[in-house]
Design a protein around this nucleic acid. Structure first.
Length: 490
RNA sequence: GGCGGCAUAGCCAAGUGGCCAAGGCGACGGUCUGCAAAACCGUUAUGCGGCGGUUCGAAUCCGCCUGCCGCCUCCA
């Protein structure tokens, strides 16, 4: 039974979906005016992980994430870069996928763009005008906030409080300073689409309502985004959508916490914005992902480079464990072995993992289960008598299942794949992405290992250590084990 | 000004009334090893920002205080 914190009700609630066994999920995606930064990455990874867990739990998930490719910021940035706004949006949409892929974020089922849904947006605005929730003023269209009595129910605000806020700036055409734009008339040189109210473009909030309603309908299950979107973006989405349809918009609202950099807000003015592509050049992607899921998604997350460095070592332990398990599976016998308590422990660890994730997607607790798994597996594969092949296969299944949820390592055929090069006794080049076993370097490496083994047999430790140290300087670490020599690149 | 969040070991981070306060990184000691590495074992918070209160019992609930952060129509 999954429980999740609903911003709308400010409490954890049991997940009851619109249709049994199915989850319809909408995530507010990026505005494509720049490369994504770590804060964007957190939202992506968090909601990707939630999606993965829902599927792990047996739900069929329909996952929609939009691109805001029509926006004031895009227009401004396009001027700076000397590009057409449409080309600029396309450029950063492509860059988004590069970065998201790097973080092992799965593609959504649908990635709708604002620019491709202008007719739906116009139709929605016309409905709002017809139902007298919106009015035309000049070439603009505004939503009448006071016509929607429930306005503020998501963010917990009252209209009077908002009016007291210092930053409500009345615009000439608005009848009420609280009203917000559904349609903005275009200034010369700006992207423009024809509409019943003249040439212009959609306001910021109406796009998500139009696209979510089109693809997921009313009363869909989960709507996600960063905590900063609660107000005004999501508040306005609710107002528009429910005013237009007369039905609830979304059942559960999930919001991820912010990232700070050494306790400070990440912002351009401070100059501490970290782009995903820059971080991925410095650290292995699995370590970055582990850092991001190491904290509960609603908590604030402080970033500093050394925090990711701590995850690098943890990721290595996961890799080592997987390698040891793979080797052990090659040696284990079906139906025979000393299982000890492994089988039972695996069941306990797996159910604890589920309990953690069922509790509002507590990835930090789930990660602790991964380390419990590592320890149990490592103990077993080093035991004098291996567990049975069946039990080790169960361990492999649990390992891969955890990875499928947390997305630490990319997968191929359900198994994690690693960027590092490592060997086993059974294969020279083990699970290497794109590596060739007959590579000259591989042959030379194997030759050096053989020469060293001969030296070791003659107790020529000077030569043996010379080779090991030399290889280490070249980035190849040798490990002597009872079964033979293992190597890995670092 | 209004609304909301956070404060747990050297560092990161779970835990929201009751076994010795998860887990990770780091550090130290040990087992194994020719030496290493990897792995494993042990140690590392009588205390959870401070002061009161409720309770048989609180990191966990209440009040006050301190510090930090976010939102209030650009923002994941």
């Amino acid at each position: 039974m999954i429980e999740l914190y609903n911003t709308l009700t400010k409490q954890k609630e049991r997940l009851v979906t619109r249709e049994p066994g199915r989850v319809a999920m909408y995530v507010c995606g990026p505005t494509t005016y720049n490369y994504i930064h770590l804060g964007n990455a957190r939202a992506l990874v968090v909601f990707d992980t939630i999606r993965r867990y829902l599927e792990y739990s047996g739900y069929k998930v329909e996952f929609v994430q939009n691109f805001t490719d029509v926006d004031d910021k895009i227009i401004d940035r396009a001027k700076e870069e000397g590009l057409d706004p449409h080309d600029l949006a396309r450029k950063y949409t492509g860059a988004y996928f590069e970065d998201a892929d790097g973080l092992n974020v799965r593609r959504a089922d649908l990635h709708p763009k604002v620019s491709e849904h202008i007719p739906e947006i116009i139709a929605l605005i016309e409905t709002l005008i017809a139902r007298e929730f919106a009015y035309v003023a000049g070439g603009d269209v505004y939503f009448s906030v006071r016509r929607f009595p429930q306005y503020g129910k998501l963010s917990g605000r009252r209209l009077e409080e908002m009016l007291a806020g210092a930053r409500v700036e009345p615009e000439a055409n608005k009848l009420d300073p609280l009203d917000f734009a559904l349609w903005k008339s275009a200034k010369p040189g700006e992207p423009t689409w024809p509409s019943p109210w003249g040439g212009g473009r959609p306001g910021w909030h109406i796009e998500c309502s139009a696209m979510a309603l089109k693809y997921l309908g009313t009363n869909f299950d989960i709507h996600c985004g960063g905590a900063d979107l609660i107000f005004p973006h999501h508040e306005n989405e609710i107002a528009q959508s429910e005013a237009a349809t007369g039905e609830p918009f979304a059942r559960y609202w999930l919001h991820n916490g912010f990232i700070t950099v050494r306790q400070e807000k990440m912002s351009k003015s401070i100059g501490n914005v970290f782009l995903v592509r820059d971080i991925l050049r410095l650290y292995p992607a699995p370590a970055v992902r582990m850092f991001l899921v190491g904290t509960h998604y609603r908590s604030p997350l402080d970033y500093a480079p050394e925090y990711i460095e701590a995850s690098v070592r943890s990721v290595e332990r996961l890799e080592t464990c997987f390698q040891l398990l793979t080797e052990a599976l090659g040696r284990a016998l079906p139906g025979r072995g000393e299982d000890g308590l492994l089988d039972e422990r695996l069941s306990v660890i797996e159910s604890e993992f589920k309990a953690a994730m069922d509790d509002d997607f507590n990835t930090a607790r789930a990660l602790a289960c991964c380390f419990d798994l590592i320890r149990e597996v490592n103990i077993s594969v080093h035991a004098a008598v291996l567990p049975s092949k069946e039990t080790l296969e169960k361990a492999m299944g649990v390992f891969c299942g955890f990875n499928r949820v947390l997305g630490i390592f990319p997968e191929r055929d359900g198994r994690p794949v690693f960027k590092r090069r490592v060997s086993t006794q059974t294969t020279l080049a083990w699970d290497i992405e794109g590596a060739k076993d007959d590579d000259l370097a591989m042959r030379l490496l194997q030759l050096l290992i053989t020469v060293r083994q001969e030296a070791r047999q003659k107790k020529d430790w000077t030569t043996a250590d010379r080779i090991r140290e030399g290889l280490r300087e070249l980035g190849v670490v040798l490990e002597d084990t009872p079964e033979g020599v293992r190597w890995k690149r670092v």
